[in-house]
Design a protein around this nucleic acid. Structure first.
Lengths: 389, 389
DNA sequence: CTGTTAGCGCCTTCAA
DNA sequence: TTGAAGGCGCTAACAG
């Protein structure tokens, strides 16, 4: 008798071919396909928590003290080579895994660094995180990732989680709604270093890793001007973020330095929520005197605008030239390819962790925060090259 | 005297405009732009680790015992309402944050669930993780994310990290190179539940969350057949993964059931490394008798093939119709839009955590693993609709 | 070179 | 309703 995995039906079960050498079934009652792997039929697992081997177990097995075991495990200098080997052997035999909770409690350090990002759906933050891990992991640290989901409250909650987890350092990129960094003050009070990256506020006293946003924006807008754009719009971000203010300023300065009019109605503010990008695009393309160029504060906003433009039959780049920011992989895939300012994403993560480590190892009683400014590179693709040029 | 933030140069510094009301400088020696925020000039932070408030601090302040504080903090029943309030007040005043390391050590549970994914650059796994967090966080658990980077060894390392972190449960999606799950056996031995999702091996005895890959593949290939494809290729995945075997089988069965020839030379194996996708595409499109349809095991592989086809001047869909798998956001952005099989990504994560919790709370000594099979949905876009049809 | 002892911060009996 | 005491697993002096 075959029973449906999903609804436990036994009658309306039909055979549905053989797959991986096993009979496949179809349950007509709940519209489910399934097979019955051997595992599910016969094997059962007791899920109650078992005792995990500890250094005491190793000590008992060898009739030595647990301190000796501890020293052996950490390759301490003053230890007999024989006993060291013996300890390592037993550790391996018992499949001993150190308990990081106990280690952390005893040492007052968790070997964990916390990282708060607004989202990790787009590629930017994942690449930063990968870069961070590339430095942190070999140094014995792992990374606890929190996403604030562009919510200020969630960001606050995240700081509390990381505080409770007793992370040894923090990497943070703020939401577009974060009015101040008071919720990070507790880390400072506790002596836990913070490095802000990418999305920082203007008023923070801490190490930072950013790119030269002003310069990138300036380059991007200049590029649009040089490609014949007369009315260049800007999708700007929340002005609590330095990054957004700098990009806006770069946009403005590029216009002014090229004797072009600065039209506030061509600046539209994006709150960084995914849906908001589409609203901005709609709004921008619906006005009677439409822009013929766009510098968007990031690639997702640029791409959203390109989508909306396509739906409206607006030709890119001839009717609307577009420049984004970040060079996320997707920007190379859309049609036409998106001109954008490449950010060294992994490099940002690496630099941030290095700054963090530097601060963690700083013994002076007077640490001076550093700001690392990385360069952007203009990547020219077809979205910005008008044909008549 | 202005000193370069980066190289400490003092002479070759030029003013470079005003930004955010502050003077901006340019260092000609090291090609750096910078400003000097007030913070960096004057304020200094002592980075030595400070004492964090503990329940003992609260107890001392109120002249009560730490046990009482502990009970008050957890809303224990047998506690005087007055003292409870007093404790909470002091806790708030001191900005007390419970030490999860100590909690975990005492309770033998870390309130953490570990999650191992092969990568999080593409959108699929991030969405699954977000779904997982949506269930885990409200339940008081946080998620420790590890990426194996498609490396078997890294996956093994990850299991050790999670073991050391004493996670209370595991969610895992395997690499394409993982030959067996021996490295997960230690969790079973320790009574730590595991739920595999998406990428599972055939021989595991554990709860799983998958989609009906066979059915999805069958649908996708049938769709290609119905749209006039005569020679349908398949970019398949590593055959250690059930998901890849099922998709391959769905492909084969769809061809056979429609009386089409099964040509092994049209099946090409992708090892799931990003570069490999391009090789597969190259290989596939270089053969003399080129396919006129492609079912790729995932969207990134499908999109890579579309890129290569474009470079070669092969028209999509007329010369090559393409179907992917997963419905990652990018698939809607490429040109033409990619026909694909939508997976309920967040739902996979939620379901996996729910299964995990179920297993964690299972007190019977004989737990029976469950497999949840979610449905896929064919999303038809232009990449598969040949014009003559 | 090794053992003893005393914590790290919290929870949980057991008594009162 | 509260306090005292012991333990979670590990590290770190301090003695030998």
């Amino acid at each position: 008798m075959i029973k449906c995995v999903k609804c436990s039906e036994v009658d309306a079960i039909a055979k549905a071919g053989i797959i991986r050498g096993k009979q496949r079934y179809y349950c007509a009652r709940c519209d489910y396909y399934f097979t019955l792997p051997a595992a599910e039929i016969s094997i059962a697992t007791n899920s109650s928590r078992k005792h995990q081997p500890t250094i005491v177990d190793i000590a008992r097995e060898l009739q030595i003290s647990k301190s000796t075991v501890s020293r052996a495990l950490h390759g301490h200098a003053d230890i007999n080579e024989e006993t060291r080997k013996a300890v390592l052997d037993v550790a391996k035999k018992l499949d001993y895994q150190p308990n990081l909770l106990a280690y952390g409690l005893a040492k007052s350090k968790s070997l964990t660094i916390g990282i708060i990002v607004p989202e990790f759906i787009n590629s930017f933050f994942p690449y930063v995180i990968i870069g961070a891990q590339e430095i942190a992991n070999p140094a014995g640290y792992h990374v606890l990732i929190c996403q604030s989901n562009e919510s200020y409250q969630t960001e606050i909650d995240n700081t509390n989680v990381l505080m409770s987890s007793r992370v040894d350092g923090i990497l943070a990129s703020l939401t577009g709604k974060t009015p101040n960094v008071d919720h990070f003050k507790k880390f400072e009070r506790a002596g836990i270093p913070i490095v802000y990256f990418n999305r920082v506020t203007t008023d923070v006293c801490a190490s930072k890793v950013i790119v030269d946003d002003y310069d990138g924006a300036y380059q991007g807008v200049t590029h649009l001007i040089q490609n014949g754009c007369k009315r260049i719009a800007h999708i700007a971000g929340p002005q609590n973020l330095q990054i957004c203010r700098d990009r806006l300023q770069g946009y403005k300065d590029a216009l002014l330095h090229h004797d072009m009019e600065l039209n506030e109605s061509l600046i539209i503010y994006h709150d960084l929520n995914p849906e908001s990008a589409l609203h901005c695009a709609q709004h921008l393309l619906d006005v009677p005197d439409r822009p013929d160029g766009l510098f968007a504060l990031n690639d997702p906003a640029a791409i959203a605008t390109m989508q909306v433009a396509k739906e409206k039959g607006i030709r890119i780049p001839d009717e609307l030239a577009v420049v984004g920011f970040s060079n996320e992989p997707t920007s190379a895939l859309v049609e036409p390819g998106l001109t954008t300012l490449a950010q060294p994403m992994a490099e940002i993560g690496k630099t941030a962790v290095n700054l963090l480590f530097k601060q963690m190892n700083d013994t002076s009683d007077c640490f001076i925060p550093e700001t690392k400014i990385l360069k952007t590179t203009l990547i020219v693709r077809k979205s910005s090259l008008k044909r008549q040029f």
